[in-house]
Amino acid sequence: MTLAMVLMVFLLGVRWILLVCSADTFIHAPKLGRFIVDVPLLRINFPTQLSVAPVGAKRLSKRPREMRCLLGAAPDECPCHLSDASFLVAKSLTKWEGIDMKPLTKLEQLRELAMDQHGLVTTEQALGEGVTHANLSMLVSRGRLQRVAHGVYRVPQVAETSADEYQLAVFWTGTPGACLSHETALSVRGLSDVIPEQIHVTVPLSRRIRRRGGEQYVVHREDLTPEDMSWWEGIPMVTVSTAIRQCIETGLPTYLIKQALRVSSGTSVLSAGERGRLEKLLSARDTGS
Rank of each mutant, 00 (worst) to 15 (best):
H182Y: 13
E227M: 09
L11S: 05
H118M: 04
A74P: 04
D193M: 06
L270K: 03
R275D: 09
C78W: 07
V219I: 15
A126S: 12
Y153M: 03
F171D: 04
S283M: 12
T242A: 12
R154K: 14
A149N: 04
R212D: 13
L261I: 06
A53Y: 14
I99P: 00
Q246C: 01
L3G: 01
A169D: 07
G128R: 01
M67N: 02
M229N: 02
L278V: 05
H220Q: 09
V188R: 11
T250R: 12
C78N: 13
E77P: 02
G266R: 04
M115I: 13
G56F: 01
T287F: 14
L19M: 13
S22W: 00
L32H: 10
T132S: 15
P40D: 03
C78M: 05
I36T: 02
K258R: 15
R211G: 01
V20P: 01
P253D: 14
R147S: 09
R262C: 01
D24N: 09
L82T: 02
T225I: 01
V263L: 02
T132L: 05
A126P: 06
T161R: 12
G151T: 06
R144H: 11
V39D: 02
V39F: 08
L42C: 03
S283Q: 13
S181A: 14
M229E: 09
T48N: 14
T173L: 10
V194N: 05
W232M: 08
M138R: 15
V131N: 04
T161S: 15
L7S: 12
P156H: 11
D228M: 11
K91Q: 14
A126K: 01
F26V: 14
G273S: 10
S92L: 14
L278P: 03
S192Q: 07
I257M: 05
C69Q: 14
A243L: 12
K258Q: 15
L205Y: 06
H200A: 13
L180N: 03
S137M: 05
A85C: 03
V203C: 03
Y166T: 06
L168P: 05
D76E: 15
I244G: 05
K58G: 02
T254R: 15
M5Y: 07
G119D: 07
L71F: 06
T242I: 04
T132K: 09
I99T: 10
P226V: 04
E112C: 06
R15T: 08
